[in-house]
């Protein structure tokens, strides 16, 4: 019972979706193909394929060191944000107290204010205390959005757990510490995994905060990529793209694992859900 107009509209909408998806995939494909190509000037595909850009990118950009720094920073951020965030989420899920809405706003603000806006004053403070330029400075800066992110993401996971389970553990004499280790953490594994993996993705791809606080020895991959494009001309475009491919892999691995635990809409939706 569709009118011709409705069918036309439907076709138009789907044509747009396909156009968009094709462009995104083609854009990613250009990066991948260029990183394997020898010379790609005025043709659809490079003249020949080679692996040497990966070797040269590895040497030129000291990718071994950069990757090590990236994962040290991301690992520390993920661990700390889980340690600080999960207990806070538990308190917010289980207790009602007068200032609760205010506390929730406090946790939402760092997620809603763009990193570059609060990053500049934050970097100023970190420079003043001498943390900026070091690895700890980058870790602390990246924790600012990931701690609230973990808190907000974990609340619904904790609310799903039947409070009777906790009451039973308490009856048998478990304190809050043992309750966490023996009851809550095992039950929360999917939630904690989702939160930590998404925090990992966010930290690896967080450009602004790392850019503002990193020194030469504490750059993560995405900042190194930015600088190499910025100083393009001295380096071969293909070896920059080789680095970009390595960056893509280092982000997407975590995303693929995370998507086993969360729906893609949730990755952006939780902020809005709790804000509305």
């Amino acid at each position: 019972m569709e009118s011709a107009l409705e069918r036309l509209w439907r076709t138009l909408v789907w044509a747009f979706v396909i156009f968009f998806v094709v462009n995104v995939l083609a854009m990613i494909a250009t990066v991948v193909i260029n990183s394997f190509g020898t010379r790609w000037l005025s043709s659809w595909l490079p003249a020949a394929f080679t692996l040497r850009w990966y070797a040269s990118a590895w040497k030129e950009f000291q990718l071994g060191d950069v990757l090590l720094v990236t994962f040290q920073i991301a690992g520390a951020v993920v661990l700390l944000s889980a340690l600080i965030g999960v207990p806070a989420a538990y308190a917010l899920a289980r207790r009602d107290f007068p200032a609760k809405p205010l506390v929730i706003v406090l946790f939402l603000l760092p997620l809603l204010v763009p990193p570059i806006t609060f990053g500049i004053p934050l970097a100023t403070v970190l420079y003043k205390v001498g943390l900026a330029g070091t690895m700890w400075g980058v870790i602390v800066a990246n924790l600012v959005p990931t701690v609230p992110f973990t808190v907000i993401l974990m609340i619904p996971f904790i609310e799903q757990i039947d409070p009777k389970v906790e009451a039973a553990a308490r009856v048998f004499g478990a304190g809050t510490g043992r309750l966490f280790i023996h009851v809550l953490v095992p039950l929360l594994v999917p939630g904690i995994l989702a939160a930590t993996l998404l925090a990992m993705v966010r930290t690896v791809s967080m450009f602004e905060l790392t850019f503002l606080t990193a020194g030469p020895s504490s750059q993560t991959l995405v900042v190194a990529l930015y600088y190499s494009v910025f100083a393009a001309g001295v380096r071969a475009g293909q070896s920059i793209d080789a680095m970009a491919v390595i960056y893509m892999l280092s982000t997407l691995i975590w995303l693929i694992v995370a998507l086993r635990f969360v729906n893609p809409t949730q990755i952006v939706a939780r902020v809005k859900k709790s804000a509305a």
Partner: peptide
Amino acid sequence: LTTILVLPITLGTVLVAEGLLNYLGPQGW
């Protein structure tokens, strides 16, 4: 579809900019 669409968000603006430099360039696809 949602998984494909979450890609550009995950990869971030730096990677998208680098990809578009080639893709939208005068000799790009």
